[in-house]
Design a binder for these strands. Structure first.
Lengths: 212, 212
DNA sequence: GTCTATAGTTAGATAGAC
DNA sequence: GTCTATCTAACTATAGAC
């Protein structure tokens, strides 16, 4: 919870230096984004308030709005930042289907260690189903991209005859995304009853013949 | 995504009126519940407002609150009513696993004809992941019940040697629920890209050897 | 860069007339 | 059973002092 917004003194970037790649402003923005992620994760965007974000970060509401001009802008920045971090996990341009599938299980295992992020995406993706939601376009695009990546991965596996009989790359991509999303809901409701990575692995074993 | 049912209250139970099974009050309550379903479906409970419900039903906000003492009470009544209707679809006490699995596909097909209900459960189940949400206990219980029903169904199939190798009743129950939930999210985002019933059937074919 | 003060909106809920 | 009027509280956002 505490996100260390307390350090008021910037290390090397003194008053004189107009420059400085690690200006204090950037640190403050980062701590605001951390707080906003937690707030939006718990109940979604519409139910989350700037007041809660401000409280968490130890600042007033106008203080937040000095760095992000509106609540919607703040949400967009949160999503953008998570995408940057997630990109390290699955390089989008892999053509090795086997590696991609293994990466999915790693991702599921990693997600289990960051419940806040899982909560954020689970809540938001359901909320953003409404066409008038500020993150609707983001999620539509996100699912398209994800589906494309998995489609390539399963197509590669099909070429190498590693897909089980009856499975198609398209169907496998859709089903895998659905499985990951659905497991997250059950996991968020009761984290003791379910191992997301393990369940996903069993699913992928039924879908492919690779040894995951 | 009505997948299970439990309900304690019958339609006309407990009303003070000495006579009149079809009192006008009951009709009004029903029309309020219809409107509330649509409002809560679009963006969840927290984002939905009594004002919108009142607008839809052609009444003032206090008019609504005369029939349901609070917004939370109204939500509970909506969920209770949906459970009553869903109960007709899958009789909870079936021991025939094959019939239950076929019932799931019928249910998915039926759901595709009532997008509002799918939206309601999809949005609410994500939102109610938070322990302080008014419907949290409801959804925890609902998932327990659903899981129990599917567990019995797949256990029956296992006894009759109709589960594929590597599948367990417990894992199959969890995975099937996850698949249904996950398909709904993708379907709500873009209803043209996905046939929920068909995808579910393909999934169940990979899980069992029955001819669904 | 952060604050106080406040505008302007919307929310859920209550009181009491009809 | 339904309404108008009203209360209280929370929200996003802006203006302007420091």
């Amino acid at each position: 919870m505490p996100t260390a917004a307390d350090s008021k003194v910037g290390p090397g970037s003194g008053r004189g230096g107009p420059r400085g790649r690690y200006a204090k402003s950037e640190e403050i923005r980062a701590s605001i984004l951390d707080a906003a992620l937690e707030v939006f994760a718990q109940g979604g965007f519409r139910a989350g308030s700037l007041r809660l974000v401000a409280e968490r970060v130890g600042m007033s509401e106008p203080g937040i709005l000095h760095h992000f001009s509106s609540k919607t802008t703040l949400l967009e920045a949160v999503l953008e930042r998570r995408d940057q971090l997630a990109q390290q996990f699955i390089p989008p341009k892999t053509v090795d289907g086997e590696a991609s599938v293994r990466g999915l299980i790693d991702l599921a295992r990693h997600n289990a260690s960051t419940p806040g992020v899982v909560e954020l995406y689970c809540t938001l993706s359901a909320e953003a189903t409404s066409p008038d939601h500020p993150a609707h376009a983001y999620f539509v695009h996100r699912y398209e991209v994800t589906r494309g990546i998995l489609l390539d991965a399963f197509a590669d596996l099909e070429r190498r005859d590693l897909l089980r009989e009856g499975a198609t790359p398209s169907g496998a991509a859709t089903a895998t995304i659905a499985m990951m999303d659905g497991l997250q809901i059950q996991w968020l409701l009761d984290r003791t009853v379910l191992d997301m990575a393990e369940e996903l692995r069993r699913f992928l074993r039924g879908l492919t013949t690779i040894d995951v």
